[in-house]
Write a protein that binds this DNA or RNA. Sequence first.
DNA 1: CGAGGTATTGAGGGGGCTCAATATTTGTGG
DNA 2: CCACAAATATTGAGCCCCCTCAATACCTCG
Lengths: 226, 226
Amino acid sequence: MDKLDRNSLEAPIIFTAALVDGMGASVCIKHLKAGETLYVEGEDADYCYEIMSGAMKEYNTLEDGKRQVAEFYKAGDMFGFSESSDQLHTAEAITSCAVRCYPRDAFMKTVAASPALSASFLDTLMTRLHRARERMVMIGRMSAMQRVATFLLRLADDADNQHTTHLAMSRQDIADHLGLTIETVCRTLTELKKQQIIVMEAARVFSIADLPRLEAVAMGARGRLH
Amino acid sequence: MDKLDRNSLEAPIIFTAALVDGMGASVCIKHLKAGETLYVEGEDADYCYEIMSGAMKEYNTLEDGKRQVAEFYKAGDMFGFSESSDQLHTAEAITSCAVRCYPRDAFMKTVAASPALSASFLDTLMTRLHRARERMVMIGRMSAMQRVATFLLRLADDADNQHTTHLAMSRQDIADHLGLTIETVCRTLTELKKQQIIVMEAARVFSIADLPRLEAVAMGARGRLH
DNA sequence: CGAGGTATTGAGGGGGCTCAATATTTGTGG
DNA sequence: CCACAAATATTGAGCCCCCTCAATACCTCG
């Protein structure tokens, strides 16, 4: 497999406009503070959601308390369409958020009624499936160094503001996303700093100082700690 | 997250019948021997496929030769609907197979034209997304013992013939599916045999001797080698 | 400025990988 | 049907990456 692609997963604009048009009054907006949950695994999946501002994460918790963060979502992303009538994940605000809520039945009906919306929706689902599989490869087959490098590359690419990139999520969130521990994430970042591949302006602000080398590391070159 | 569900992923019967009806002549059947590829990562994704008999695997290969098996497919399963115009995985026959091939454009059009088909298709996609995320949890957060136990449980459940279950895939395939090495898979199976939790009638035929303990192991009880 | 959360660094141990040898099964041709 | 080769599976020894446990630094907000 050539390098993991880093295309954006943003819901097309058509999505929002057509949905709000079609569903009107039944759509509402919810505001969340950092740390609040939008829904919890197991509860009824009555709504689909679209992030208007802020960042969220969707995760599962195992019996022993370990977490796996399935996805991070940012403004423009849609989520919460569970295939069952229950939520299969927990969604939690990372920063304070504004979220548009679509009643699930009406949402599905509106999507089904419009070929364009259906196509967009399918695209989103398939892209997300693809991403999930990419991350399976990452978690199952890559070293800690490769995982962190790949993660930083994707973040920088998603944000594509010229220089610095902000990390909305904590080290713990990153660890839970990459299948690592928080300590390993820290050590790996430190190593990337030492090698002057990245610069950390603050704990949650970084910039890529040497893109080719970061990409090389992500591909497996010198891809270990120590 | 409570225990990973093990519901079948078979395409509903409605799928096949309606599709063949709607597309008629453009559908063709292809026969593959074990080891032959149906498509290779990067080539044009012109068709969607449905397995009529046999078993297949869909995987990615990394630069260093490591593989990640995304899914195993068996009779009744549909696959190959890539979100891009290129295939993102390689699909290879595990046993000799008969595969029904649907031209991709016509397939999508037929699905879009039928609400029932659309719903089935969405279900399939979302179930698969859910499975991919389950496996992310498994690979990222579970011990080798837990992964193998979970895998055996799912296989036995999918096959649900009373007693013994046949493994179509090799140890290498299992390892590549679970994010382990072939040696670890072997050792883990040996340990499960020693503890009389499973019985191996042959290298590729097993039966579960103690379901509650296997489930307990999958959940994390005594979930380590040694 | 203190308190609590978040992040970093260190020391040590273990689970699973690597390398290697052997056993078993499968496939092929005589 | 057997013999041989090739592929697949199993077992062993040793090591290393990452986890665990623990201490310290930093950052944010009352």
